[in-house]
Nucleic acid binder design. Structure first.
Lengths: 223, 223
DNA sequence: TAATATATTTAAGCATACTTAAATACATAA
DNA sequence: TTATGTATTTAAGTATGCTTAAATATATTA
C-alpha cells in the first residue's frame, strides 16, 4: 500500500519531469528539500513497489502505475484548491499549502463529490488544468512563459506556478493575477530579467519569476 | 510540535474519560487497537510534552493543554462530518472515517471558514455537539442511553455513537435515525438487551448497541 | 493474608524516513 | 586522456511508533 511519503515523491517527480519524461535524483532532492541519500533510499522502495523505473545512476521515469498515482494526487490537490478558494474564499496564495495536506487525507469518493459540488472546474486557482477521474487533462491553450515573449508583445496571464515558494504572494503584491494583461517593455540580456508594464506600472521581473508566469500572447493590432 | 499520532491519542483519551476525568492505559490501548506497550511508550512522550498527567501504574489525566488539543480535534472532526454529510451528501455512517483523516490535515483557518460556510452548525450528523473556537460546547439537552429507559417509555433518538465500529450502518439498517421515536417493549435482565418498537417493527437491541444510542424521553400522555 | 489473575512496564526488535560522512561513479573541461 | 568537480550511492546512526515476550506491579478473590 502506498503511503504519504511515496505520494509526495511521485507528485514531485511528475511535476518536474523534463522533456524526455525523466528527472534526476539531485533535482528531486532539492524540490523535496531533503538529502540525496534519502532520495536514493526511497527510489529503491518506489522501484520495488512498481511506481518508478529506476536503475542506479540513471534518471528516473514513472511507470504507468506511478503516473496514475501522481495524476490522481494532482487531481485531488487542484480540486481542493478550487474548493478552498472558490467556496471558502481563501486567497489563491494560501490554498496550495493547505491542499498539500488535504490531498493525502481524502478518498476518491470525497474528491468526486467535491468535483460535482464545484460543477466540474477545469482549472485550479492558479490556472493549472484538473485531471478527470481517468487522469485525462483537457488540452489547454498553448501558454508560454513570460521569458519567451519579445519586446512590445502583449499577453494575458493564464497560469502562475503555485509550486514555487512565495512566488504567488510576491506576484499578487505587484498586481499580477490571472487574466491581467502585460506588455513587454524590455528584455535584459545579462540577467535574463524582463521589464513589463502592467496597469501603468513598470516592473522588472527576475528570470526566475518571469519563467514561472505563463501567458497567452495577444495578437498585435496593426496600425 | 504535536503530531498526528499524539492528536489521535489525545482525542481517544478525551472521548473515553470516566466520570473522574481519567482513563486507564488498558482501555486506551483497546480503543486505539494497539498494544499496551505502545501506549506506555506514547504516554511518556505525551507527558514529556505536557499534554497528559501521567505517573507509572496510575490512571491518565489530560492537562489543560492536552484537553485543548483534544477538543479542537473534536471540533475539526465534527465540522468536517457536517460538511461531508450536509454539503456533499455523504451518508452519516461513512463520514466518521473520512473525518478521522481530514481532521489531521486542516488548519484552524480552514475549519473556521468551513464553520461559517455551514452557518455555525451545533451538532454533527450523529447528534454530537460541536465545540466552538474556544472549546466551549453548547449545553445540550439531557440525553440518556436506551438502556436507561424503562418498559413502556417512549423516546426520541438524539444521538448515536459514531466511534463504535459498524454501529451506524447496523443502526441505519434497522431503521434508526436521529429524530425517530422508539417505544420500550421489554428489558431482558439476563443479557441487558432491550426490545424496542420502531415504526411498527419490533427489534431486540443488544446491550452494547442500546447503550450507544442516546435518546430524550417523551413525556407519557395520560389517558 | 496468600494465591491468582490482570494491568502495566521494560526490553529487544522492526520498518520508515530521515540525517551526515565517506566511497564511488559519472560528466566535463584541460 | 587525465584531472577535477559533481552526482549518486553506501554506511552508520537517529527518532518515531509500533510489535512480542518477559518482568513486575497492582487488583481481586479464596
Amino acid at each position: 500500500m502506498i503511503n504519504i511519503s511515496q505520494e509526495d515523491y511521485l507528485t514531485a517527480i511528475f511535476r518536474n519531469l523534463d522533456d524526455a519524461g525523466e528527472i534526476k535524483p539531485n533535482l528531486l532532492a532539492s524540490k523535496l528539500e531533503i538529502s540525496n541519500a534519502a532520495v536514493t533510499d526511497m527510489l529503491r522502495k518506489l522501484s520495488r513497489d512498481g511506481f518508478v523505473d529506476y536503475q542506479k545512476y540513471k534518471s528516473i521515469k514513472l511507470t504507468s502505475e506511478g503516473e496514475g498515482y501522481a495524476k490522481n494526487m494532482l487531481r485531488r490537490h487542484r480540486i481542493w484548491e478550487v474548493f478552498l478558494h472558490q467556496t471558502l474564499g481563501m486567497p489563491w496564495d494560501k490554498v496550495h499549502d493547505e491542499a498539500e495536506k488535504l490531498e493525502h487525507s481524502s478518498s476518491d469518493e470525497i474528491i468526486n463529490l467535491l468535483e460535482e459540488f464545484l460543477d466540474y472546474p477545469e482549472v485550479d486557482p492558479h490556472g493549472y488544468p484538473i485531471p478527470d477521474k481517468n487522469g485525462k487533462m483537457k488540452k489547454s491553450k498553448t501558454v508560454i512563459a513570460i521569458t519567451e515573449l519579445n519586446e512590445n508583445d502583449s499577453a494575458k496571464v493564464i497560469r502562475v506556478n503555485d509550486d514555487v515558494k512565495n512566488l504567488l504572494s510576491y506576484v499578487t503584491k505587484i498586481g499580477i493575477a490571472l487574466g491581467k494583461v502585460i506588455l513587454i517593455k524590455d528584455k535584459l540580456e545579462y540577467d535574463g530579467s524582463v521589464l513589463i508594464k502592467i496597469e501603468n506600472k513598470e516592473i522588472n521581473l527576475s528570470n526566475k519569476i518571469a519563467s514561472n508566469i505563463f501567458v497567452e500572447k495577444i495578437k498585435q493590432v496593426m496600425r
